[in-house]
Write a protein that binds this DNA or RNA. Structure first.
Length: 949
RNA sequence: GCCGAUGUGGCGGAAUUGGUAGACGCGCUGGAUUCAAAAUCCAGUUCUCGCAAGGGAGUGGGGGUUCGAUUCCCCCCAUCGGCACCA
């Protein structure tokens, strides 16, 4: 009987549904295990073959853990709010709620067809009011807390108010937007509005004027991680810096913990290093320089205080308020021109211009705190307003940029570090001996740093300071499709949060949800919603996509709780995610925000863990082949040129070609034939008039005109490996593959492709191998007539050995997430058992259980045929027994001078001496030794023999 | 430029602690079956010299440690990913 996977799959789906096989309870005596896939955004194009790679891997692991007696939480849901979902809806001209609903339905269907063992009763959606109610609630908590740097945790804002009333800012160590100081008397005497403005500077969710990434095309601001090379990550639109009042989350307060706790999680080195970089901790000092003729002090940040005697000028960020104040009248024009020039430059331009230093002199001078010398103050765009204090002491001898600047503006360079002992060291490297530096002379750099830091603190001219590259997270979006920020403003503009009883604050229905261009959210147009009867006004910005995904893994443990974001018992039982699987593209956004929210909720004692994801595996990207046709514009005419006759000197416009039009796709000779070309012009009607030139002739107006009799219409396309995406028309859908080969085959093939974390182009070359394997596996159970072959015969030792070898290998390999080698192991086992004509139930039944995590459908069917009524996925993982692997002899490789020349079998318990003797007597060994003296004879028992001549 | 990862047959890849390099699969070659084909089954398949027996080379390149290196160390190259005036 042939393997009829379609029928088996159908039966399994209804069996699992009926028995609720994958539903999991929060009450269990079994140990817990939490396996989670990264939250998908339900895109309009559905799943392509790249998505399931991680889902299948995590599913195998979840099933494996279940078979090993764990209570496994393995849920799935949708990151349904956010920019991509909204852009998709706008492009189709429908409401995002409608398109999201449609997309989710399709996703669900596809995910189920793959046989993923999700507990669907726990499905959540970020756009669902019963969910976003709690996202909003967490926002209100962030608003009502500040960060106490002394206790190193978040505390309620009331504690801060109490501190202000009692002590003012004295002895306050709290994360803040601006360092200010006042007395308790000041605090009580100022207005309520002023008090609130001050408190706002301490809240963990706060409103502030900041420079934001404004994207005109998307009509919204974007977070730093949504901007790549000065363009929006989504859509590639230009992004400019704009001052705008926005909501922010004070993630910087958690910078140190986010950094140090990376050591406690099992993530890849590359991912950890990406996060470390993003956080960008640097230790140094803030040092105050007085300004000649002004009361103001100039505070600078440096990581090289040891080079302070080499500081020959100062540089300020052009945007700094101080600049205007200190500029002397003679220099006013120059400075103004320069400031204007900088403000007109986009982020992108500033980044691309690395070599050419620019700047302007303010005419003011700072006083060197140790030498008392006057040093000129410049401004330049290479100093960033938001990093450190926005001001530096420039040391041209030990910093490449400072040096370039000094050379251009003819400023003195004093060598302060003698690096003659380190000829290979680059400029700025922290090695060498200090010279020309008064009391620091002769010290090694690390010592000098310590000495100067002490001196700076003694003299009260500065302090040690740790600085971070990490910025506070912009949390406002001027878009429709997101959680409304649950804030109202009174007549004075004082912000307050909505109480839990008024949550969720649902998105109002609007006629026009398209983005505006005036920097306001679309819901701001809805006056009736914005203005409350009591005169207060609602906040109209919405939250970014990262909000809902920052805590979703918590909600899965108790998804239907209407009284709390999660039940205490539920979260204390399940705790954090044991295994998290997803792409590395979320390295800094989602993964950092989720860690931040987790730590915040931990501080508030809502949860008992400090990291959301203990172990994280990044699955590689399955790439696609992108097919491109070369286009040359000749006047108004469009000429397409086949790649084999393309002129390598010329540059052509590459146009994407949908892969379904391409013949011999994935092969070198991929091309469009006559029918393909017709499809192409039908798909792009504006190119109907185009001319396609190829070796064999020309295709024009829907007809191929050959150069000579019998010439072929073969328009060769240019093929390259790249991301699989709808916009490149190269997505391959799992549905067709499942229909043709079955879900089990699809699952095993995706795993067989190679290590899970490796990226590779998709190719169906080789899927036949898996398909054949499954059919061979099937023939262990059924003959061609459909007769059941399994017997109760006692298995022979050889079959037992095969089984137990396989159990051992598969168990070890699953535990190290090496799924491709598991599939190989199954193939080896099936090949060997077929050779033995083994049909013994005692062998085959454990083999079926072993394969259940990989091929859940076929194994479920066979399990039932083997006489079981309950699901195989509720059974157990076969136990490995060493005794079946014990061998009486071991085959040793015999090497001469490290090169293998022969093999020889010896008894397992053969002594070293016996082996030595036997080896030396071997003919082949004597031939190689050839009478020469034997220098050494190495025998590693159970391993190998090496004869050194 | 800095940081991280990767580099093995025609292809995807395996070799878990330094111990038989190339498991398993694709592809290819030959054979069986068939009127023929598909499917299936059997055998072979790193390169190279050789009729063969048997040699030689070989895990991106160069060097080193070791009886023995895909595995450890140093230098270099290539590809991918991240960051890029970060003081």
């Amino acid at each position: 009987m042939d393997l009829n996977f379609a029928e088996i799959e159908k039966n399994c789906h209804s069996f699992w549904k009926e028995k609720q096989t994958y539903q999991v309870s929060n009450q269990s005596d079994q140990p817990k295990f939490y396996v989670l896939d990264m939250f998908p955004y339900p895109s309009g194009s559905g799943l392509h073959v790249g998505h399931p790679l991680g889902y299948i891997a995590s599913d195998i692991f979840a099933r494996y853990k279940r078979l090993n007696g764990f209570n496994v939480l393995h849920p799935m849901g949708y990151d349904a709010f956010g920019l991509p979902a909204e852009e998709y809806a706008i492009s189709r001209g429908i409401h995002p709620a409608v398109s999201t609903e449609e997309n989710i339905a399709r996703y669900r269907e596809q995910l189920e067809s793959i046989g993923l063992s999700f507990d669907w009763s726990r499905e959540i959606r970020t756009s669902d009011p019963t969910y976003h109610k709690w996202t909003q609630w967490i926002f209100t908590l962030l608003f009502n807390h500040y960060y106490d740097l002394e206790a190193d945790k978040a505390k309620h804002i009331h504690e801060l108010e109490a501190h202000f009333t009692k002590y003012g800012t004295a002895n306050l160590k709290a994360a803040t937007t601006n360092d200010i100081s006042f007395t308790p008397q000041d605090w009580v005497s100022i207005s309520k509005k002023d008090q609130q403005d001050i408190l706002m500077q301490y809240r963990l969710a706060f409103r502030s004027e900041g420079t934001v990434n404004w994207c005109e095309a998307l009509g919204t601001v974007l977070a730093n991680d949504q901007v790549k090379n000065g363009l929006s990550e989504r859509g590639g639109h230009p992004v400019e810096l704009r001052p705008l009042t926005q909501w922010f989350l004070r993630i910087t307060a958690y910078a140190d913990r986010l950094l140090s706790d990376l050591d406690t999680v099992e993530w890849t080195d590359s991912l950890k290093s990406i996060q470390r970089h993003w956080i960008g901790r640097s230790e140094g000092a803030a040092i105050n320089f007085s300004i000649d003729g002004f009361e103001d002090v100039l505070s600078i940040f440096t990581t090289r205080p040891d080079t302070i005697f080499g500081a020959t000028f100062m540089v300020l960020a052009p945007e700094l308020a101080l600049v205007e104040k200190i500029t002397i009248s003679n220099q006013k024009e120059e400075i103004e021109t320069y400031v204007k020039y900088v403000s007109g430059r986009s982020e992108r331009e500033r980044q691309s211009e690395v070599k050419n230093v620019t700047g302007a002199f303010t005419g003011a001078y700072a006083i060197h705190p140790f030498t008392g010398k006057k040093i000129p103050i410049y401004i330049s765009e290479y100093v960033l307003k938001d990093y450190g204090t926005g001001a530096i002491m420039a040391v041209p001898s030990d910093d490449a940029r400072d040096r370039a600047f000094a050379e251009k503006f003819n400023i003195e360079i004093i060598d302060v570090v003698d690096k003659s002992d380190f000829p290979k060291a680059g400029i700025g490297e922290k090695v060498g001996k200090i010279i020309n530096s008064d009391f620091l002379n002769g010290l090694e750099v690390p010592e000098a740093i310590e000495v100067i830091l002490q001196k700076v603190e003694e003299n009260k001219i500065g302090e040690r300071r740790v600085n971070y590259r990490l910025r506070d997270a912009g949390f406002s979006r001027q878009r429709y499709w997101g959680e409304p920020i649950p804030i109202v403003y009174d007549k004075e503009g004082i912000a307050s949060t909505l109480p839990l009883s008024e949550l969720p604050l649902e998105l109002p229905e609007v006629e026009n949800f398209k983005p505006t261009t005036d920097g306001r959210s679309p819901i701001a147009r809805l006056e009736s919603w914005v203005n409350l009867p009591d005169g207060r006004r609602r906040e109209t910005d919405t939250m970014p996509g990262t909000a809902g995904s920052a805590w979703y893994f918590i909600r899965y443990t108790d998804p239907h709780n209407s009284d709390a974001f999660v039940g205490k018992e539920a979260i204390d039982y399940w705790e954090n995610v044991d295994l998290y699987v997803g792409g590395s593209e979320h390295a800094v956004a989602h993964l950092l925000y989720a860690r931040f929210w987790t730590k915040f909720l931990y501080d508030l004692e809502k949860i008992k863990f400090t990291e959301p994801f203990k172990k994280l595996i990044n699955q590689g990207m399955i790439q696609g082949i992108i097919e491109v046709a070369y286009l040359e514009k000749v006047g108004d005419a469009n000429h397409f040129i086949s790649t084999d006759i393309a002129d390598s000197e010329k540059s052509y416009a590459p146009l994407y070609v949908p892969i379904e039009f391409v013949t011999d796709y994935q092969k070198e000779e991929s091309h469009l034939n006559e029918a393909g070309l017709r499809k192409y012009i039908a798909w792009k009607p504006d190119l109907a008039e185009a001319v396609f030139k190829m070796k064999g002739g020309t295709f024009k107006n829907g007809r191929f005109v050959p150069n000579e009799e019998g010439a072929e219409c073969k328009f060769i396309t240019h093929s390259e490996v790249g991301k699989m995406s709808k916009s490149k028309f190269n997505t391959i859908n799992p549905d067709e593959i499942i229909e043709e080969y079955g879900a089990d085959c699809f699952r095993m093939y995706e795993m067989f492709l190679g290590p899970i974390e490796q990226s590779k182009p998709w190719s169906t070359n080789g899927i036949d191998g898996i398909s054949k394997f499954l059919r061979r596996f099937w023939t262990l159970f059924y003959d061609t007539e459909g007769k059941w072959l399994v017997t109760t015969d006692k298995p022979n030792p050889e079959a037992l050995k095969i089984l137990h070898q396989t159990i051992k290998k598969v168990k070890e390999d699953i535990e190290r997430f090496s799924f491709n080698t598991c599939v190989s192991a199954f193939m080896v086992a099936v090949n060997d058992l077929r050779k033995l004509k083994c049909h013994s139930q005692e062998i085959l039944q454990p083999l079926v259980q072993l394969m259940a995590p990989f091929a859940p459908f076929i194994t479920e069917h066979l399990w039932a045929k083997l006489g079981h009524t309950d699901s195989i996925h509720k059974s157990s993982f076969p136990a490995f027994e060493e005794k079946y692997l014990v061998e009486s002899t071991i085959e040793y490789p015999i090497s001469i001078n490290g090169k293998k020349r022969a093999t020889a079998a010896f008894a397992t318990d053969a002594s070293k001496e016996d082996i030595e003797k036997a080896v030396l007597e071997m003919k082949i060994v004597q031939k190689w030794v050839d009478g020469k003296p034997i220098k050494r004879l190495i025998v590693v028992p159970g391993r190998m023999v090496n004869v050194v001549v």
